[in-house]
């Protein structure tokens, strides 16, 4: 497989469970060496997508490729180069953390067993590896899950909510660790998370899934620029909103106290000011809105839900 080829690619991926359509024509592409965020509210189809990519569930229509292998044929070869945490990490509680890794290492490859000490060190479980996995805290199990995913020296990591159960310091550490996996070790990370600020901090690109459909996909900074608004503090906000609403490139204006939020590109703020000045209105303060991924996510999912309700 050449380096430029996508690591994961789906083509109109569809999955139906009886009458329920869990995935509806999903197209996404994950490039080598990036941290790819997979966002969506509960029930959006994230886990179904991951299950299809790992060969646990068969698609109803469409197709998907993992490391160049179709999920319907020859996926097992590709999965030897994939490490994954699906939902919560699962272990044998009567075995030590190290022995649990040994079980998964033996399944993966002959070389994987030799990597166990290094991987334990990497995830911060050194010194606790002889403890029974059943006695591990949720955070430690999460680390052990990551260790199990890493033990086979995978090219691609598929991580489903990897910071679940970690304390704030642990989450921060995990985020830095995931970034290092991509930046220093060249691994591709497919990260499913509901923590938007986490995705914003760690991921290069994201896809937002809602009700089984992709509603946005792209670089995080590009998506953030999609929420383009200007806020201004002004007297007579209602009158100002009415004036600005007449401009055809302004998507909307809403007043809140003495603040007016205008849905318009920040670089066209001078034109907004000119339109207001022409009517004798002068803002005290004008500032571009710095959007968070959370705002983008909520706006996009609200829009998608409203469209679906309208249809």
């Amino acid at each position: 497989m050449n380096d430029a080829a996508p690591v994961i690619r789906t083509f109109d991926l569809t999955k139906r469970f009886g009458r329920l359509t869990a995935l509806d024509g999903v197209n996404l592409e994950v490039r080598r060496g990036e941290v790819f965020g997979f966002l969506g509210p509960n029930g959006a189809g994230k886990t179904t997508t991951i299950a299809i990519l790992l060969g646990l569930v068969h698609p109803s229509a469409g197709s998907a490729e993992v490391l160049g292998c179709d999920v319907r044929r020859g996926l097992s070869r590709a999965l030897r180069r994939v490490g994954a945490i699906v939902e919560t990490p699962a272990f044998y509680p009567y075995m030590s953390g190290e022995d649990n890794l040994r079980v998964f290492a033996r399944v993966t490859s002959d070389a994987a067993e030799k990597r166990i000490p290094a991987v334990l060190e990497q995830v911060g479980l050194k010194g606790r590896e002889r403890d029974k996995a059943g006695a591990y805290s949720l955070g430690m199990r999460q680390r052990l899950g990551l260790a199990a995913a890493l033990v086979g020296d995978p090219e691609l990591l598929i991580l489903d909510e990897p910071t679940n159960g970690l304390d704030p310091a642990g989450m921060q550490e995990m985020r830095a660790f995931i970034r290092r996996l991509a930046d220093e070790e060249g691994r591709t990370v497919f990260l499913s998370s509901h923590l938007l600020h986490e995705v914003e901090q760690v991921c290069d690109r994201v896809v937002i899934l809602n009700k089984g459909r992709v509603i946005a996909q792209g670089r995080v900074d590009e998506l953030l620029r999609q929420t383009r608004a200007v806020e201004m503090r002004i007297a007579e906000t209602a009158r100002a909103a009415g004036i600005l609403a007449t401009l055809d490139w302004v998507q909307g204006a809403s007043a809140e106290g003495e603040w007016l939020r205008v849905q318009a590109p920040p670089e066209r703020a001078p034109e907004l000011l000119a339109a207001l000045a022409a009517q004798g209105l002068f803002p005290f303060e004008v500032r571009p809105v710095v959007a968070s991924l959370e705002q983008v996510f909520l706006e996009l999912t609200d829009e998608a839900n409203a469209e679906a309700a309208g249809a």
Partner: peptide, 18 residues
């Protein structure tokens, strides 16, 4: 049975085990 109850079967299948 514990591979089903502990969901470890998923972890094994996700490693390319048929």
């Amino acid at each position: 049975g514990e591979d089903f109850s502990r969901r470890t079967l998923r972890a094994l299948l996700a490693r390319g085990v048929g």
